[in-house]
Write a protein that binds this DNA or RNA. Sequence first.
DNA 1: CGCGCCTCCTGTGTGC
DNA 2: TGCACACAGGAGGCGC
Length: 283
Amino acid sequence: MPELPEVETVRMGLAKWVTGRTIATAEVLHPRAIRRHLPGDAHFAAVLTGRTVLDVSRRGKYLWLPLDSGDAIIGHLGMSGQLLMQPADAEDEKHLRIRFTFTDGGPQLRFVDQRTFGGLSVSEGGAELPDEISHIARDPMDPLFDDAAFNARMRGRHTEVKRALLDQTLISGVGNIYADEALWRAKLHGTRPTDQLTRPAVARLLGHVRDVLGEAIVAGGTSFDELYVNVNGESGYFDRSLNAYGRENEPCHRCGAIIRREQFMNRSSFSCPRCQPKPRKTA
DNA sequence: CGCGCCTCCTGTGTGC
DNA sequence: TGCACACAGGAGGCGC
């Protein structure tokens, strides 16, 4: 499940391999992969052919590739998406959805996605920041992230703290795994009401979010020096460092209590019953 | 308009 | 061994 650190790893790898290259063909092999591109696959191919990739940018879990036309390719990996660089003669992946070839005849860019929650689209004039993702907040690693504004907005919400962490319009890049990890570090249960959090408590939580994301970026950034830009949720290089996520029935690394698993927002949440007591009243 | 639930999708794991 | 089903969850969309 790619969250900010995984997407940032992909961004760095992609930037290295596609910047400055000119697209020769854009082939859509599964319509769902461009469902956000309303004009369809013929238009997708037409507006991308002959365009040169200028850079690879990221906002939260979204990527976009600014082009010399002023447009941009927007990409989201969803649950299982991968952006791979592959030699032209490499066999098609089972779940290959979109293939780009370049005029230099070098490695292809392939969008592979088993569950098709992810996809690509073209944003007209979106090279600077695509309108389609302008509602996504800055991530906490962004130098322009506004800590004070985040603190105020978080405490102004009438919801639960984990829901707020997962709201990409409030803070971006955090998914289920890193939300649980940050909450564990902050010793907060995910159902704590946001409007009852103190300003220092929110500041501490934000600090833990930054730490978790930063450590994961460092862990992931060590392995992209090769041709394959690979994001695979299963192989998570950060797995060994997890304190809460996926550790049901295992002892808390801090106090030894048995980590519990709860259904929350239609997904699993993991927390320590001793370090992260539930609030008396659920919001 | 804020909030929260539903849905999209398919390979994998589990229990009978 | 085979079948049925739960599970993984990001984010748009919609209902209240």
